[in-house]
Design a protein around this nucleic acid. Sequence first.
DNA 1: TCTCCTCACACTTTTGAACGGT
DNA 2: AACCGTTCAAAAGTGTGAGGAG
Length: 495
Amino acid sequence: MATIKQNILSSRVKIQMFRRTEKLVDESFILYPLTKTDEFCFADREAPARLPPFPPVCDVAPRLLDDVKMELENSSLWKQFSSVGTEMIITKKGRRLFPGLRLKLSGLNPSLRYILLLDVVPADNSRYRFQGGGWQAVSGAEARLPDRVFIHPDSPATGAHWQSRTISFHYAKLTNNTLDAQGHIILHSLHRYQPRVHVVEARDMLRWGGGQHCFVFPETQFITVTAYQNNKITELKINSNPFAKGFREDGMNSKNSEVMAEANFDPSFSAAPSHPHPSFPPVDYPSSSFSFPTPPPSDASSSPANSAFIPETISPHTPADFTCPSNPQTSPPSQVRQGEPDANASNGRLAHTSAAFTYPNILPMNAEPEYSLATLPANGSCSTFALPSLPQQIQTLSFPNVTPSAALNFPNLTHQAQFATAPYRPEVVLHRQAFIPQPTSTPAPALYPAFPSYPLHLHQDPHSALSAPFRHLYRQHQQSHPRSQGSYISTRAVF
DNA sequence: TCTCCTCACACTTTTGAACGGT
DNA sequence: AACCGTTCAAAAGTGTGAGGAG
């Protein structure tokens, strides 16, 4: 136990190091050792009295977060880029998104903790080429790469925390290095992608549950490139990104720079957009995003989405492989308000931000009374976590208490057929069958140019996806308990 | 020849350590 | 001893352009 406690303290220091900008935002986020039956569990036992304990078990039962609203603060800047055809540089070492995702959350329970996740999914099944002054789809998409998710470094934090400030994912990086070991989000060049933000209720980094929501802002779609193709995009980036000031012709005092500086820091900036790019797929902005709470996986046969994968480690600032069973097209049509902003989400700020459309979750709850650490109850659907570092035989675990899911059939999911030609195989995973409810809703009409919805699945590779400062924790744990690899519990991180 | 990618480079902002003062 | 503000070097984030691979 002494070793465990030492690791916990070490971990906390690491976390604090990561949160250098905001210190330890929520000091109550401390992982405490458990006794019970598992010395590697963490729970509320030693939580300081001044801090409210984690919510009781009954409070973390899966439920919808249908009151949660998300706004894209710098929506106008995104739309300005999108009107030209947003391009995102991807490099071997990883490149940040620009514009960044600046979000405002509301509707959270101030006292509950949430994890915020960012992932990027293909927007269509094409590979693009810039020719004739525009983007043309020239061939089918390349095989899909392993899904990775960027976990916001503040996670988990209370609803009060998330709602009290602008949430930025500026630490997230994109890479085209399929062997990336830094945990960056891996994407193909010359493909079109759609970022998604997930809000997951969580007791701590290892106990996820209670509900989740997925938010999509259509104006944040982009095409990945290794070098900018469209001069207009280059110009926009140079003028709006402070790091590119050196390439501005007239320096900071130029008229153009002043305008763009405003665009960069003032969400209300709304310069006259360039003419829409002739060939960039049109995106209709109803001044908002839409959100949808993780319906069941779309295709049980082509994706392990009907299974729950158990993550080894979830750490702040650590991109993980994660897929969310989010599919707007499987949501009930009555809940979809195409082209109509959610009145509650707008908060009268639609001129400046993107509000959210909501797809209330009508899925049945997961039958499990409590989600143990590392499982992500996607509102009754499944979560998948990967343990690629473990031998296959070890990963084949038996969970007698869960019901194997029957193959699901969602005949109205158009994207399924679309992606039948895009083979998608998740990385090797620790497989845990989970209860999968039958869908009870009919598909909703598409709101935007169809982008496929993939099941959200955590795929945490401690050696690749885990951020560097946390890797030693995993190794230390593995060394300390070499025989425990095969067990569900022992593959968790040691904090 | 063309397309796409990688790398070194110059320039910028950000970060954090090292101070000194209160 | 603790806190705060300033300074400054290092690290990190930009787009550019040359060059290489296929």
